[in-house]
Design a protein around this nucleic acid. Sequence first.
DNA 1: GTGCTCCTGACCAACAAGGTCAGGAAAGTC
DNA 2: GACTTTCCTGACCTTGTTGGTCAGGAGCAC
Lengths: 151, 151
Amino acid sequence: MRVSAKADYAVRAAAELAAADDDPVKGEKLAEAQDIPLQFLEHILLELKHAGIVRARRGAKGGYWLAREADEVTIADIVRAVEGPIAHVQSAPPESIEYRGNAEHLQEVWIAVRASLRTVLEHVTLADLVSGELPSEVSALAASKDAWAAR
Amino acid sequence: MRVSAKADYAVRAAAELAAADDDPVKGEKLAEAQDIPLQFLEHILLELKHAGIVRARRGAKGGYWLAREADEVTIADIVRAVEGPIAHVQSAPPESIEYRGNAEHLQEVWIAVRASLRTVLEHVTLADLVSGELPSEVSALAASKDAWAAR
DNA sequence: GTGCTCCTGACCAACAAGGTCAGGAAAGTC
DNA sequence: GACTTTCCTGACCTTGTTGGTCAGGAGCAC
């Protein structure tokens, strides 16, 4: 239940691309802006490219840019591109697991876990992230005092 | 963003203990009831014991039982005992990370992710799980059509 | 003392995380 | 056409995690 460095880096780089608004941005500039190891970032950007989220051109004047508008790319898209499916249990989707005995209703719990993750990740777009205007359900979650307490 | 086999096993075993209601249950019986490799399960139960969730006695008539009432143990307690903190980013709690440039608001997003996980995991108790009567927010999440669709 | 059951550490193979290194292949510039 | 720039790709590396197994010790009950 943790967020990998790769996913965090990917979202941060994508946020920079969203702010650059279709102008190609060099990998090196992204790496500097977000303090990410360049060569590692290049691998990540390649994955985002293969997922159809980002485009790229080589050579002078080359760089990376978003394949879609910033308000049509969600955090979930990016996390899935680099980490794979969200909220799998034992590497399988929760709807495919059969539980027995007293754990029978655990499936519904894991489904609810996935649904709750989706309500955040699929509703925040890169445009939201850059502008800081998160969807109301999300900022409500982040606003409660409890949300900031470690546990 | 996945649920490990260990966490899944731990919750399932705990559900069996919750149903047994303070009678010591042998590891072997738990392993059979939930189809978990016995020796692996013993390690997991040990972790639950160290976390103060479970108690145990050896010898004939020995076994495991819950240290607290089933309605006072949440899924979050169990997941934390075996997987560590929920929703850490790059192995650090989201409230401790500083984001720069266009990713500045990413912190709020990760905080919201953690909060949304907590609304599920901290509100479902073992008693809820065994009875099948999940808290209304949770069953609402699990009930929506979308929640069961793979993506 | 003799089983029974938990407790614990050691070990193991496979894989993921988080990178680095080295070179190739396009795109633009002169 | 040569040269530079920048992306593209695969190979490699170290460390830790996942998902276990194995072997023995320690406490409890009879």
